[in-house]
Design a protein around this nucleic acid. Structure first.
Lengths: 334, 334
DNA sequence: CTGTTAGCGCTTTCAC
DNA sequence: GTGAAAGCGCTAACAG
C-alpha cells in the first residue's frame, strides 16, 4: 500500500550529519545556519524524502482537509459549486473531501462525525436533510442556503429576495402583464424561500395579482405543471399568464418544454426566467439553459472558504448574501 | 480549527477500567472477553469516541483516502463519474479526495505527490495532461481511458470500438446511407481513440465511404462544424450525408443545434448519435440530451474502485473494457 | 543557533 | 485472555 521504506526525517538527519530537530526546522522554514540548511536540503534531495503527512497530522491536530457535503455532483448547480469550492480551497493549500449525501442523512452524519474527530478541519454543507442537531459545536462550518436551529452557524446564500424582484421587474420590462411563479421545494427552510417572498413583494409593489404553484416534495412535477397549465387556459385556448418566474432553471426548463409541447411559443407567448444560471453542459461558452437570475457560484464558493478559514481568528458573520444578476438565455424577449 | 479535546483511547480505557491495548483490540475485532468488550463499547458510546485517523494512519500507513483526479466537475460526464466513484468508495469505507485539475498539470503532480507522501492510499485518474512520468511506482492507481507510457498501470474504459460500430449499425438500421464522424480531441492518446477506429472499421464492413472531421484541440468548434457543413452541401442545398456519429454527446448536441439553425431537421434530414449518455440536468429522469452510445458510468466507477482496492492482493488486469449501450434520445428515427 | 527529548494517539509485541 | 510498553514520524520545548 506504500513504498516499502520511505526515508524518514531520521534518515535525512543522519545523511546530513545534523540533528533531527534541525531537519524539522529546515522543513518548516525556521532559521537555521546556511551551512546546515544546504546539507539538509542536499540530503532531502538525495534520499528523495517527503514528509509523512500522518505524523505531521498527528502532531499538529490538523489535516488541511475540508469536507464538502452536497447532495450530488450530477445536478449542474451542485457540480459547479463543488468545482469552485475545490478551486478556492486549493488556493489556500486545503484539500477537499467530497461527500455526496443524496437523501442519506446517515451519510451526512457520518461525515459530521469525521469532522468531530479531527479528520477534517472544517465543513461546508449544502444539504437538504435534518442534520442540524448533529453539527459538532466549536467546529468550523459554513452552510449554504439552509437554515438550522442553531443560529450561530454561519450561512451563505445569494440574495434570493432581490433576485426574485429582479426577475419580475425584468418580465414586466419585457412586456409581461401576468407573471406567475412556480416552485417545487423541500420541507427544509432555507434562504431560497425568499424567492417566493420576493415574488409576492414584487407583485404587491407593481400591482400584480399573485398567482403561483408552490408544492413540497412532489414526485410528479411534469404532471403537476401540465395540470397548472390546464387550469390557466382561457376558453379560447390562450393562457391567462404571459410570464413565468421559475424557482430554478431546472423547473423553468421543464415548464418551457411542456409549454412548447402544448403549442405555446417561448418567449413569444410566454416568457420564462429561472433561477441559478445553469449553463448547457456546465460550460459557460455554451451559454445558458434559459433566461435566468444567476447565482454567483464562484463567489459563493470563495466566500464559503473565506468564512470557514477565518473562523479561527474571529466570529464570522452569521449570514452573508451575495448579489445576483439577470442573464438572457433565449426564453425572454430581448 | 479542531474541537478542543476529542476523547482518546486512553480516555476510553480509563472510563471502561481496562488497559489501552484492550480498547484497541475491541476496535479492531480482536478477541476479548465478553465482559470487557461490553464495558469498552459502553465507554466508547458514552464518550462518543472515534479513532483518530492520523494516529492510526501513522501506525498503519494507510488513510482510507483515495484521490480522484479529474479535469472538473462541471462537465456532466466527469460529474457523474465523480458521483459514482464517491458512492463506490463510500461502500468500501473509503473517502474521496477530489482534485479538479482542469489543464493544470502542476496541480495533478501536486496530488500525485500527496499520494507519494502517504496521504492517500490510491489514485483514480481521468486526466488529459502528460503526467505519466510523475506517477509514483508501487502506488495503487487506476486510470480511466488514458494511455500512459508505463503499460503496467491498470486502465479502465468503455468498449469504444464496439460502441462506434454499434453507432454506425444503428444509424444504418434507421435508414442512414452516409454516416459521417466528427471528433475534437486532445493530443493525449486514450482508449476513446478507438471510436474512430470503430467508425472506420464499420465503414469498411458495411461498404461505406468514410468521411469524418477529426481535429486536435480546436478552439473554434462551432465555426469548424459550420465549415464542415458548408463543404458537405450539395448544389441543391441538401446534404451529402444523412447521419452523424459524434465523438461525444457534447459535440453531437452542438452539431444538432447548428444543423437546425441552418434549417435542417433532426432526425428527419440528419440523424445523430453521440457518445457518453449524458442526461439533461444530470438527471436520468429528465432523459438524454441526444441519442447516444451510453457509457456505463456507474459500473465504470465501481470497477475503478474494485481494481484499485484489489491491487494489494493481486496484480490487476492492465485493461478492463466495459460494454456500452445504445439509447434513444430524440435525434434518431425510431 | 543546535541537539536532545517528550509526546501526539494508535497498534502490537511481549510477558504475565 | 490481559496490561505494560515500544515505537510509527513528526514538532516544539528545552537546555546547551
Amino acid at each position: 500500500m506504500t513504498s516499502k521504506k520511505a526515508p524518514t526525517m531520521k534518515d535525512v538527519a543522519r545523511e546530513a550529519g545534523v540533528a533531527l530537530g534541525t531537519v524539522s526546522k529546515v522543513l518548516n522554514g525556521i532559521p537555521v545556519s546556511e551551512k546546515n540548511k544546504l546539507k539538509v536540503e542536499e540530503a532531502i534531495r538525495s534520499l528523495n524524502y517527503e514528509v509523512n503527512t500522518y505524523a505531521r497530522g498527528l502532531k499538529m491536530q490538523k489535516s488541511n482537509l475540508i469536507a464538502l457535503i452536497i447532495p450530488n455532483t450530477t445536478n449542474p448547480f451542485f457540480a459547479a459549486f463543488a468545482y469552485y469550492i475545490e478551486a478556492a480551497l486549493y488556493k489556500k493549500g486545503l484539500r477537499l473531501l467530497l461527500c455526496c449525501a443524496d437523501g442519506m442523512p446517515e451519510k451526512e452524519i457520518d461525515y459530521l462525525n469525521l469532522a468531530a474527530n479531527n479528520k477534517v478541519d472544517g465543513i461546508i454543507a449544502l444539504t437538504y436533510s435534518d442534520i442540524g442537531s448533529y453539527i459538532p459545536e466549536h467546529l468550523p462550518i459554513v452552510v449554504f442556503d439552509r437554515f438550522f436551529e442553531n443560529p450561530s452557524i454561519p450561512r451563505i446564500a445569494s440574495d434570493n429576495f432581490a433576485g426574485a424582484c429582479l426577475a419580475i421587474e425584468k418580465l414586466l420590462e419585457f412586456g409581461c402583464r401576468h407573471p406567475v411563479y412556480i416552485r417545487f421545494h423541500s420541507v427544509f427552510p432555507g434562504e431560497s424561500d425568499k424567492r417566493k417572498e420576493g415574488y409576492l413583494y414584487a407583485c404587491e409593489k407593481y400591482g400584480i395579482e399573485p398567482d403561483y404553484l408552490d408544492l413540497v416534495d412532489s414526485n410528479y412535477e411534469p404532471a403537476v405543471l401540465k395540470e397548472f397549465l390546464k387550469q390557466h387556459k382561457n376558453p379560447d385556448g390562450t393562457l391567462n399568464f404571459d410570464g413565468v418566474f421559475a424557482h430554478t432553471d431546472y423547473h423553468g426548463y421543464m415548464f418551457k418544454n411542456i409549454l412548447q409541447e402544448e403549442g405555446y411559443r417561448v418567449p413569444e407567448d410566454v416568457q420564462i426566467i429561472g433561477f441559478d444560471g445553469i449553463n448547457l453542459f456546465g460550460n459557460r461558452e455554451d451559454g445558458p439553459v434559459i433566461s435566468s437570475i444567476c447565482q454567483p457560484i464562484d463567489r459563493l464558493a470563495e466566500q464559503c472558504v473565506e468564512i470557514l478559514t477565518s473562523q479561527k481568528d474571529s466570529l464570522p458573520p452569521s449570514l452573508t448574501l451575495l448579489p445576483v444578476k439577470y442573464r438572457y438565455g433565449g426564453t425572454t424577449r430581448e
